[in-house]
């Protein structure tokens, strides 16, 4: 006659999960949970810089629209994948790059390209508006969904076309007498996208000399 395994089972169940709870949850929190900014000793520049108001609000739009499901925000190291060769960054990203993010959106899927440094790679706001309104205008063949709902199509006022109206040609142009203007959410989202830059020189992730000179 053997004993019931009840208590042993119960202890085993609790102890096994406790081990990784300590190792993979508490331990990283201890190691990385209070990382701060780094001040460059030569230039006194501070990395990573905190995000300005409009861009910070844009991060919430980025979260709410679920951009993370198709776009990563992480640049892999030099000898791993082709992120650097594709020009997605001048160095790999490290833990410190993410300390200001309310929700860290590293992403796990590259249906679209990485956006870690999109603000550096494409700083033209007009391009971003056109691309969001309909990606085919800037990137024919893209499978990104059009985000026309972030824009308002309205009649052109007596004062003429608004300064912020999108320049759209051919099939993408609105009907005559109407114009497409970004809503507040589109403005915030583009401010966020243009703020995405993680290429400051960090001791744990230096930008290579010749790269920096470019």
């Amino acid at each position: 006659m053997t004993m019931s395994y009840g208590p042993l089972l119960f202890l085993g169940i609790l102890l096994t999960l406790a081990s990784s709870w300590v190792g993979l949850v508490l331990m990283p929190h201890r190691q990385l949970g209070s990382l701060g900014q780094h001040t460059d000793p030569d230039t006194a520049a501070i990395f990573p810089a905190a995000r300005a108001g409009e861009a910070q609000q844009g991060a919430e739009i980025y979260r709410s629209l679920g951009c993370v499901y198709c776009h990563t925000q992480q640049v892999r190291p030099e000898d791993y994948g082709s992120d650097l060769e594709r020009g997605w960054g001048r160095r790999r990203t490290v833990s410190r790059d993410y300390i200001h993010d309310r929700t860290v959106m590293l992403g796990t899927m590259r249906t679209g390209p990485d956006l870690t440094n999109i603000g550096e790679r494409q700083s033209d706001a007009a391009w971003h508006y056109r691309h969001l309104y309909n990606p085919q205008t800037t990137s024919p063949g893209s499978i990104m969904p059009p985000h026309a709902f972030l824009f308002e199509t309205r009649a052109i006022g007596p004062a003429g076309r608004s300064t912020n109206a999108l320049v759209l040609e051919g099939a993408f142009a609105p009907p005559a007498g109407r114009e497409v203007v970004p809503t507040r959410r589109a403005v915030q989202l583009v401010a966020y996208l243009r703020s995405l830059k993680s290429s400051g020189d960090l001791p744990e992730a230096p930008v290579k000399k010749e790269e920096a000179a470019r």
Partner: peptide, 23 residues
């Protein structure tokens, strides 16, 4: 959190060993 970590590193394996011995 460091105390919790240190404590866990000692206590968890100790508890596991004790449980195995007892079982």
């Amino acid at each position: 959190i460091s105390f919790i970590l240190l404590g866990s590193v000692v206590l968890l394996p100790a508890a596991a060993l004790w449980a195995l011995r007892w079982a």
